[in-house]
């Protein structure tokens, strides 16, 4: 009412100010959480800021091609996890592998860093990427399949 403003305009301004403050607070909180809220370390992050030896953490990245080795005991596998900056962390895991665990695909390992720099995993989770490709396109390598999809995919 003051300054000739209509009541509804006053309310609109008030709500907009409240929303701006709220979004600002939310963004600040999300920004502060940017490292704490990560579900896993990338190999590069694990090398740059290694967690304490024996501390329970998760490591996530791609399984390097031709890196999966079966140990002589038959239930232990070792492989290398890498990221797009090609930092690498060797991983050792004893147990049953998930179906989607293949070379060149994403993985999240739960476990701890050993003193020798190997990551000893208690549990493996397979990570799916954002690509959905039918079996018929399987013969193409992933890169080519991506290109096909981008070329065919309608704008959504």
């Amino acid at each position: 009412m003051t300054n000739g403003l209509k009541a509804k305009h006053q309310r609109l301004i008030l709500v907009v100010i409240a929303l701006v403050a709220l979004i600002g607070a939310g963004l600040l909180a999300a920004w502060a959480l940017r490292n704490q809220a990560n579900y896993f370390y990338l190999p590069g992050q694990m090398i740059a800021e290694p967690p304490e030896v024996g501390q329970a953490v998760r490591l996530g990245g791609m399984v390097q091609q031709d890196s999966i080795r079966n140990m002589p005991d038959g239930v232990t596998v070792s492989f290398i996890v890498t990221d797009k900056d090609s930092a690498v962390v060797p991983v050792r895991f004893t147990g049953i592998l998930p179906d989607l665990f293949v070379e060149g695909s994403g993985v999240v390992a739960e476990g701890r860093l050993a003193a020798d720099g190997t990551f000893v995993a208690d549990n493996l989770l397979a990570k799916h990427d954002e690509n959905y490709v039918p079996r018929e396109l399987q013969e193409m390598d992933q890169h080519k399949a991506d290109e096909t999809l981008v070329a065919q995919g309608p704008a959504t």
């Binding site: 990570k127 690509n131 490709v133 039918p134 396109l137 999809l149 065919q152 995919g153």
Partner: peptide, 24 residues
């Protein structure tokens, strides 16, 4: 996008889709 997560990043973003038309 902000955090490393087990859930994959978005498949459908502005003007681009990583989902094959057979599914899309």
């Amino acid at each position: 996008v902000w955090w490393n997560s087990l859930h994959q990043p978005p498949s459908i973003t502005m003007g681009k889709s990583a989902i094959d038309p057979e599914f899309l």
